[in-house]
C-alpha cells in the first residue's frame, strides 16, 4: 500500500497539470477561431483574383508564361509547413512522416516552423531556407517565403514547387497534403469561374500579357498565404483536441488516485482502531 503522503503529492501534481492543459485547450480554441476567421477573410480577395484570371483567359497570347511552363523535373522544392511548438498531438509527426517519403536526392526543402526545420537538420536533408512566422502571419510575411520559392523556380534552380502542410478538414481531422504549386497548372491559371457570355470586354493596360505577368505571381503568393493560414488553424485545433484529451486523462487519473488515497486512509484508520482496541484489551 502506497504511502499516504506520496499519493497526496501525486494528486496535487496531476491536478496542476490538468489546470495547465485546460488553460492551453481554451487558448487553442480561441486561437483556432481566429485562424479560421483569418482564412475566411481572404475570400473577397480570392473572388476578385479569380474574376481577373477568368477575364484574362481569352486575351492572353498562346506563348507559355514562365510560371506555366512545365520542365522535366530534376530538382523539386518542397515548402514544409509545420508548427513552432509541440503539444499538438500527431500533427507534426504525420507531416514529417510524409516528408520522409520524399526523394532524398532530388528534393530541396524550405522550412516554415521550427519542428520541420529541426527534423530536416536531424535527418540531413537539403534545406535551403528556414523562415520563422508569428502565430498569425500577415500576407507580407508569407509573401517573403513564396517570393523566395518563386525566384528559385524562375531562375531554374528547381523545376517544381510544392507545399506540404496539414490541411484543416475539421476540428478532429487534419490531413497532411502535398500540393503542387509551380508550374501553375493551366486550369488553375484560367480561373475557376464560368465565363460570362457577352461579359465585360476589358481593356488591359499595358496589355493582357503584362497583366497576366503580374497576376500569376499573386495567385501563387495568395495560395501559399491561404495554406499557411490553414496550417495555423490545423495546429490550433490539433492542440485543442490533444489538450482536451490530456485534461480528461488527468481527471481520470485524479479520480483513481483519490480512490486509492481513500482506501489507504481507511486502511490506516482500521489499523489504528485495531491497535487501540488491542491495547485496551491488554490493559483490562
Amino acid at each position: 500500500m502506497a504511502n499516504l503522503r506520496d499519493i497526496r503529492r501525486r494528486i496535487k501534481s496531476v491536478k496542476n497539470t490538468a489546470q495547465i492543459t485546460k488553460a492551453m485547450q481554451m487558448v487553442a480554441a480561441a486561437k483556432m477561431r481566429k485562424a479560421q476567421q483569418a482564412a475566411l477573410a481572404g475570400h473577397p480577395y480570392s473572388q476578385v483574383l479569380d474574376r481577373v484570371l477568368v477575364s484574362l483567359r481569352d486575351h492572353v497570347s498562346e506563348g507559355a508564361h514562365p510560371l506555366l511552363e512545365s520542365r522535366p523535373v530534376k530538382k523539386s522544392l518542397v515548402l514544409l509547413v509545420t508548427t513552432d511548438k509541440g503539444l499538438c498531438g500527431a500533427l507534426n509527426t504525420n507531416i514529417l512522416r510524409e516528408a520522409a517519403t520524399l526523394d532524398h536526392e532530388s528534393t530541396v526543402f524550405v522550412a516554415s516552423g521550427k519542428k520541420g526545420a529541426s527534423f530536416l537538420a536531424r535527418t540531413g536533408r537539403n534545406m535551403i531556407a528556414d523562415f520563422a512566422l508569428p502565430d498569425s502571419p500577415t500576407f507580407l510575411q508569407t509573401k517573403a517565403i513564396s517570393k523566395f520559392c518563386l525566384e528559385k523556380f524562375l531562375s531554374g534552380e528547381v523545376d517544381s514547387v510544392s507545399v506540404l502542410y496539414p490541411k484543416f478538414v475539421n476540428t478532429l481531422t487534419q490531413k497532411p497534403l502535398l500540393v503542387p504549386m509551380l508550374p501553375i497548372s493551366s486550369e488553375a491559371a484560367q480561373g475557376k469561374g464560368e465565363h460570362v457570355e457577352g461579359g465585360a470586354q476589358y481593356l488591359f493596360e499595358p496589355d493582357a500579357d503584362g497583366v497576366l505577368d503580374a497576376v500569376l505571381p499573386y495567385y501563387f503568393h495568395f495560395s501559399v498565404f491561404q495554406m499557411i493560414l490553414d496550417a495555423r488553424a490545423s495546429e490550433q485545433s490539433a492542440r485543442m483536441v490533444a489538450m482536451k484529451s490530456a485534461t480528461d486523462n488527468a481527471k481520470g487519473l485524479v479520480k483513481d488516485l483519490t480512490l486509492e488515497y481513500n482506501k489507504a486512509r481507511q486502511a490506516a484508520i482500521t489499523t489504528e482502531l485495531l491497535e487501540i482496541t488491542t491495547a485496551q484489551m491488554a490493559l483490562a
Binding site: 481593356l203 488591359f204 503580374a214
Partner: peptide
C-alpha cells in the same frame, strides 16, 4: 481617376 461608367479596364 475613375468615374462611374468608365470602360472596363484592368491594370496594375
Amino acid at each position: 481617376g475613375i468615374l462611374p461608367d468608365h470602360m472596363p479596364l484592368m491594370t496594375q
